[in-house]
Amino acid sequence: MPTATADPKRRALGKGLESLLPQRPAAAPPPPPTPAVAEPTGKPLEIPLDQIDRNPYQTRSHFDEAKLSELAQSIAASGVVQPIVVRPLSGGRYQLITGERRWLASKKANKATIPAIVRQVSDEQTLEMTIVENLQRADLNPIEQARAYQRLSNDFKMTQEQMAIRTGKERASVANFLRLLRLPESIQQKVESGDLTFGHARTLLALDSPEAITAAAQKVMALSMSVRQTETYVQGLINPEAKEKKESKADAQPEDPNVREAQDRLRRTLGLKVRIEDKNGKGRVIIEYSGLEDFDSILTALGGD
């Protein structure tokens, strides 16, 4: 049986048709998919960490690196227990609202995703939620709290009463934190670092000039004064006459010679300043000490360990 061969004319005809018919353009590659933004559902979703932006309203500026590392180790072992809260942005991204420590620690633990609750909230609500979370967790130092309240006031025109209602604090407390921003910048830094407490700072505000506040704060820190000692010291600066009168009264000898003799005997025995305040057979014995050695001497004299 003869073998079939292709007809040269047929091949030519096919080639001619191809040359006559217009060529279809190659199909363009499909565009890359746009990351889908999760709809607010109130339920935790696993969201990639690299799609989450830091909260621009974050009021906390300091994080304890040691505690952050501990949290990262816990997350690496057991995951994130409490979801963070984010809000959707354009381009498939999210903005952190609350949970920055968990977000940072998850990055430190080399996690790819983090459980998050998506909420559709305004800038004002974002700032409120950030402040409230930090205040409730006591994560802010006094100056950070003061700046947070100031931001609510400046950015959203809230009154102290409104801020107190929104954050669940007393109005007087809000006012006291805001007053801290009247401190000189160098003293604010000492409060922020923990060298001075909120009580110290509030007491120093009774002084009338930045120079007086700075000088007093330096002495308070140098002598490691307690808040109560600071109050006495500041009152002495404000009213030196009252201080002198109080000191002269403290140095006055008891009227009863027996009480006076007992006071002198205690002073000689302890080698410390002792004052007995007696009224009709009732009163108190005040022993002043200036260090741990003196305190140990008092305990030993009283039969303590």
Rank of each mutant, 00 (worst) to 15 (best):
A138T: 11
N134S: 13
Y94C: 02
E133I: 02
S122W: 09
Q125E: 15
Y149E: 06
S122L: 10
I114N: 04
N110A: 14
Q95K: 05
Q120G: 03
R137G: 10
Q136R: 15
L140H: 04
M129Q: 15
Q95S: 06
N134I: 07
R147G: 04
A105K: 00
Q95F: 00
A146W: 00
A109H: 10
L96Q: 00
K111S: 07
N134L: 14
K108H: 06
D123Y: 06
D123Q: 09
E144S: 04
W103F: 14
L140C: 05
A105F: 03
L96F: 01
A105D: 03
K111W: 06
E124C: 08
A105M: 03
Y94D: 04
K107C: 10
Q136H: 11
A116V: 10
I114T: 08
G99K: 00
A138K: 12
K108R: 15
T130A: 15
D123S: 12
N141M: 04
A109Q: 04
Y149K: 09
R137F: 06
R119Q: 15
T130W: 05
Y94S: 02
Q95Y: 00
K107D: 07
P115Y: 11
L135E: 14
Q136K: 13
I131Q: 09
I114S: 07
A112F: 11
R101W: 00
N141R: 10
Q120K: 14
E128F: 13
K107Y: 03
W103S: 01
T113D: 10
S122Y: 07
T130I: 05
G99D: 01
E100T: 09
L104D: 06
R147E: 14
R119V: 14
R119Y: 08
L135M: 13
A148L: 02
A116H: 09
T126A: 13
G99T: 01
G92K: 00
R137L: 12
L127M: 15
S122Q: 08
Q120P: 00
Y149N: 08
L135A: 10
W103T: 03
L135Q: 13
N134A: 15
I143T: 05
V132R: 15
V118N: 08
A116P: 05
P142K: 05
R93V: 04
L96P: 00
L96T: 01
Q120V: 03
A112I: 12
I114V: 14
Q136F: 05
M129D: 15
D123F: 08
A109K: 06
S106G: 04
G99P: 00
R101S: 11
A148K: 05
T113H: 12
A105Y: 01
T130C: 13
D139S: 14
N134H: 13
M129A: 15
L127W: 12
K111I: 01
L96K: 01
E133D: 15
S122G: 09
Y149D: 03
Y149T: 05
A138V: 10
R101M: 05
Y149H: 12
K107Q: 13
N134W: 08
E144M: 10
I97P: 02
Q95D: 01
L127P: 05
R102H: 06
E144N: 06
A109S: 09
